[in-house]
């Protein structure tokens, strides 16, 4: 355990979530808890990663946590034990959808207006976020004029206009070059640490990138029987990287224990 670090309240409680689509069992009793990360003297949100191979049901689970789909069984609850309907959890989808007929600034202002902010508050928050995300000079641009990385930043900023405890990022590292990957990783940590109770959940199959930014990893996968996958994914592993001393440190990716865990996870991935 890293000195001065501990865990606090449960901020997200996913219990026995099951989902069947067209008679195919997709999720089978998915259960995990995300707990508040506490670091003495520092505001620390948490970054958690939901890992799993392609097609295992990660995005389905993301949609349930985001309140977009209802599970067939089980519950998803927040910090106070409350349900999380659509609109309470921020989601940045893989293709970073933004309203293409609105400019960057207008997309952010709309999020403020939907979230019930006054016009003045919405304007102030928009300008603040444009500055934070280095997009001031792109305020008048349409999404069609932005690069993939810029779109991603605006999509994240839009979800933060109205303060939210949860932000889900679907495959945020997909198609990024090493430099962009580093920028996105840094951005994810910054967003998480904006508030003590912030939780950024990354849904990805990129093990190395997820390990580099996360405090906790949850592995979603299917069991195997006689060399065949048993239908219905569940959490097959939880890895506390803070506990293992593999979080919040520079140059972590070169450490032998980081590399060893990465290899272990890759091996596990192939069986899921």
């Amino acid at each position: 355990m890293i000195p001065g670090a501990s865990v606090g309240e449960v901020v997200l409680d996913v219990k026995e979530v099951g989902l069947t689509l067209e008679e195919h069992l997709i999720l089978d009793g998915v259960t995990f808890q995300v707990k508040d990360r506490i670091r003495e003297g520092i505001t620390t949100g948490q970054v958690v990663a939901l890992l799993g191979p392609s097609g295992v049901g990660k995005t389905r689970l993301l949609r349930i946590i985001a309140g977009l789909d209802a599970p067939d069984s089980g519950t998803v609850r927040g910090l106070q034990g409350e349900e999380l309907p659509a609109g309470t959890v921020g989601v940045v989808f893989q293709d970073y959808p933004l309203l293409r007929h609105r400019t960057v600034e207008s997309n952010l202002l709309l999020a403020g207006s939907i979230g019930g902010l006054s016009a003045a508050r919405s304007e102030a928050r928009t300008q603040e976020l444009l500055k934070t995300f280095g997009m001031e000079d792109r305020a008048g641009f349409y999404p069609g004029q932005l690069s993939g990385g810029q779109k991603q930043r605006v999509a994240i900023a839009q979800q933060l206009v109205v303060p939210r405890r949860f932000l889900l990022l679907d495959e945020p590292f997909s198609g990024l070059d090493p430099a962009a990957l580093e920028d996105v990783s840094k951005l994810i940590c910054e967003v998480a640490n904006l508030d003590e109770f912030n939780t950024v959940m990354i849904v990805t199959h990129d093990i190395r990138a997820a390990m580099a930014v996360s405090d906790t990893l949850y592995m979603l996968g299917r069991a195997s029987k006689n060399g065949k996958h048993v239908p219905g994914a569940k959490i097959v592993g939880e890895y506390d990287l803070v506990d293992r001393g593999l979080a919040w440190q520079k140059g972590i990716m070169e450490r032998p224990d980081f590399v060893a865990l990465e290899h272990e996870l890759r091996g596990l991935f192939r069986t899921l």
Binding site: V91, G115, V162
Partner: peptide, 20 residues
């Protein structure tokens, strides 16, 4: 995804129809 994007922002279905 365009409808879902507005839903996660908390937009009403009528506003989604107007915007999207």
């Amino acid at each position: 995804s365009e409808f879902d994007h507005m839903r996660v922002l908390g937009a009403s279905e009528l506003l989604i129809v107007w915007e999207v």
